[in-house]
Write a protein that binds this DNA or RNA. Structure first.
Length: 272
DNA sequence: AGTGCGGCCTGTCCGC
DNA sequence: TGCGGACAGGCCGCAC
């Protein structure tokens, strides 16, 4: 389940292998994704130099000369750098071959991912245009969150996971960030104080930065570009720890509860 | 306008 | 041992 740290880890992992290279072939074995992959992807991309691999939210942006290939890894997607001769396996849906030498291979068993070609400014793409700030954007701060929250009576966990509020805070990191900030996940967003939002901003950044440093969190089927799992899982303090003692306060027992149709974890003692 | 829910998928895990 | 069913989850689109 690639969250922002996994996507950023993927970006950093693959970029050195393909940046500046010329695309020699795009092979699509399975077009059925969240949106159908363009049938003429090869014609669209062939011959173009890949200038840079960027990221916005959880979208990877492959900046080619005449446009941008937008890639989302969905729930189960991964990108790997391989030799073009490596035999594709089940769920290996797309190959991007560069200089007839390097293959960037997209694997996505659940096909919740997305591959889309866009010729304009990628930030104007309908899927990207309305997104909230990146977690490290100075505009993501306590004033901003507190003001936005006034019209949000729902749980703060849903609020912070809303991509229109801030991007990149998925289910795992929402639980972790709220725990570190001492905020109970079901607390109404409008009832969280300005001071607590300042703690939350810092916690979100810290959790995501640490996770990126560890190469992401692997819980099920995400693999890094080199095929090795990330190690942030060992750093999780509440996620998937129901029944265990809270490592922060030493008193509470971690509970789990469905909030907004997603499993959430928290310490009833140090989160209020 | 904010919120809730259905739908898209398949691998994994549980219980019978 | 085998198999059905629940579950997980990002995110869009629709209904309320």
């Amino acid at each position: 389940m690639p969250e922002l740290p996994e996507v950023e880890t993927t970006r950093r992992g693959v970029a050195p292998h393909v940046t500046g290279a010329r695309l020699s072939a795009a092979i699509v074995r399975e077009h059925r994704m969240r949106q159908p992959i363009p049938t003429d992807l090869d014609a669209l991309l062939r011959g173009q130099i890949l200038r840079e691999v960027k990221r916005r939210a959880k979208y990877l942006l492959f900046d080619f000369e005449r446009g941008t290939l937008i890639v989302h890894l969905g729930m189960s997607g991964s990108l790997r750098v391989l030799a073009p001769t490596a035999p594709p396996q089940r769920h290996d849906h797309v190959d991007l071959v560069f200089d007839d030498a390097v293959c960037l291979r997209l694997r996505d068993p659940r096909r919740f991912g997305l591959v889309s070609w866009w010729t304009g400014d990628p930030l104007t793409h309908p899927l990207l245009a309305a997104l909230g700030p990146e977690p490290w954007d100075p505009r993501f701060n306590a004033d901003y969150l507190s003001a936005l929250a006034q019209s949000r009576p729902g749980a703060v966990k849903n609020f912070v996971m809303d991509g229109h509020v801030v991007v990149g805070v998925g289910n795992i990191y929402a639980s972790e960030s709220l725990h570190r900030a001492g905020i109970h996940p079901t607390r109404p967003a409008r009832r969280v104080s300005h001071a607590r939002y300042a703690l939350l901003v810092a916690a979100v950044r810290e959790v995501l930065e640490t996770a990126i440093g560890f190469g992401g969190t692997t819980l099920r089927d995400f693999t890094r570009d080199d095929g090795k799992p990330g190690y942030f899982r060992n750093e999780l303090r509440v996620y998937a720890r129901a029944g265990q003692r809270c490592v922060t306060c030493g008193k509470g027992e971690i509970r789990q509860k469905v909030i907004g149709q997603r499993m959430s974890y928290f310490c009833p003692v140090c989160q209020r």
